[in-house]
Design a protein around this nucleic acid. Sequence first.
RNA 1: GCCGACGUAGCUCAGGGGUAGAGCAACUGAUUCGUAAUCAGUAGGUCCGCGGUUCAAAUCCGCGCGUCGGCACCA
Length: 638
Amino acid sequence: MVALTLPDGSVRTFDKPVSGAEFAASIGPGLAKAAIALIVDGTQRDLSHVLDRDATVAIMTRDHEDALDLLRHDAAHIMAEAVQELYPGTQVTFGPSIEDGFYYDFYREQPFTPEDLERIEARMREIVDRNETIAREVWDRDEAIRFFSEKGERFKAEHIETLPKDADISIYRQGAWLDLCMGPHLPSTGKLGKAFKLMKLAGAYWRGDARNSQLQRIYGTAWRTEKELAAHLTRLEEAEKRDHRRLGREMDLFHIQEEAAGSIFWHRKGWTLYRACQDYMRRRLEAADYVEVKTPQLIDRALWEKSGHWEKFRENMFTAQDENDKILALKPMNCPGHVQIFRQGIKSYRDLPLRMAEFGACHRNEPSGALHGLMRVRAFTQDDAHIFCTEDQITSETEAFCGLLLSIYRDFGFEDVRVKFSDRPAVRAGSDAVWDKAEAALKEATQAAGLDYTLNPGEGAFYGPKLEFVLRDTIGREWQCGTLQVDFVLPERLDATYVGEDGVKHRPVMLHRAILGSFERFIGVLIEHYAGRFPLWLAPVQVVVTTITSEADGYAAEVHAALGAAGLRAELDVRPEKINYKVREHSLAKVPAMLIVGAREAESKSVALRRLGGKDQEILALDEAIHTLTSEAAPPDA
RNA sequence: GCCGACGUAGCUCAGGGGUAGAGCAACUGAUUCGUAAUCAGUAGGUCCGCGGUUCAAAUCCGCGCGUCGGCACCA
């Protein structure tokens, strides 16, 4: 007797073991047809899995929340089958399901081309039409290794060797093709359906290690229905429209050119946005009792040797030589400079915590393949600060920092913040006792600030644990911006001390912290988050005054002057164009507000206020319009 | 840095061994118009750079640079 409990609590009993497919059929023919897998006591199984003991069993259909993963994983297998049919000699490696789709990494001497992708996709559709049965087999380990080795599948053979000795070696066979895989899988290839598409070719390394073989990765996307697929493709187009590189050009914010790869040419409008952010940050830091400093760009190699950067970070540092061949490095970080300021004069415990901020322009020689618009650059300015404090102050300083960070993110329109906590790495400086203390302090402070965190075990810096703050934007993408790192090492290396209450010299702890991260990156995130439609306080041009007829030109100039006097960033457009044309142009330029004036407005000293994207307009007295706009344009901390 | 693709007018892109092409933008002129494209005309090019092959190279080949998509990297 086998008693199987369904999720609704009902129990069905059978005289002898039944397969999942038979179990589904016993419930109903519709379910038998829709079933794609089982969940037995919480574990996913193939539909062919034999239920031979009492269990709780759910039948998974395509509508189940985990079904997409299964479909995508099968899509990866079907792609691998198609590739090996079309290109014999290609070796398979791994092919998992990922967010929005799947990929499979292949080893093949000859590169795949975009045309190959079309052929592969067409073959995949044939395999779906063939509706091959997918069957699980359990093989003997040595036999499996021998089989794959003889086939020339050296990556698979190597992989089996690294599996635990007691692991089941399961093989999935579909038609004439087979692959080593944990499963589970769909009952047949036809169940995948048609809602998939191969997307792009990319390089990847075997086991993710740059020292290993270079593999060719093919990415695809797969969905339950063709409608979902179409929606996904539309989402990608939308994301492309808000790409900060595209908007940066369209909105005349900045550009990059090859003579300065990785550095930004900020145009007038982009620089206005940048300054709005920087002015805001400066006010917030001042209000939070930070002091602002400025340290040198070029510093002698000797200091970087002392700080440890020369040893740990040399690869990423730009250097210059003076006339005596002395080597200077462009600073990649501000910390050593800040310690030099701290060391001037004698510091007492009464000076702590000392919060030293700098809008520090840093240069790092990032690998060429890493550069990406504003998001990954070689020259950037951090909203950097170092808090010199005692060990006892770590908790309160961290808590205050988290509060400040959340408030600032909220002002910029980000409510959704995730925290990653990275604890001690294998190779580290400092005693376990100090690490215990620092890790505990960080955790405590994070919780006190009301933040949840996920653990990144062993990912801390060699000099201390760290927190990383990740923003989620309007379309759900995540961006790492803020960071807080506890550092016991640098104060020691660069000999920073303070005199304690006991009259004896002590080492301060340094907290490295940034909220926006770099202005470049953060502005990139802002552009994409708002799709260029900035709130008034950030918009480079806040309002355009424009005319319906040239009769109103004189009045429009008065309005423009009044806006300027009220501190608004206003432009005047008196070109003799149709109003439709001008509205369209300024709308495309994403100017948040337009004041449109014609003969009527000139007569009554009023304006027609039109909001970006708005359907209609509001007729207001000029004073009233200025009042409305100036109050909206006030930065959130004002 | 690695793999692949790409680099032609301000932008988006076509072309391809023998006067360099379109749309939009720009400029000039006309149009005075009520909320997302008025009409006509004009001008615009080191076809990424450097070498090579060729009677002839934007086109073919080599090297370099850059960009894009991934991977690796992100102290």
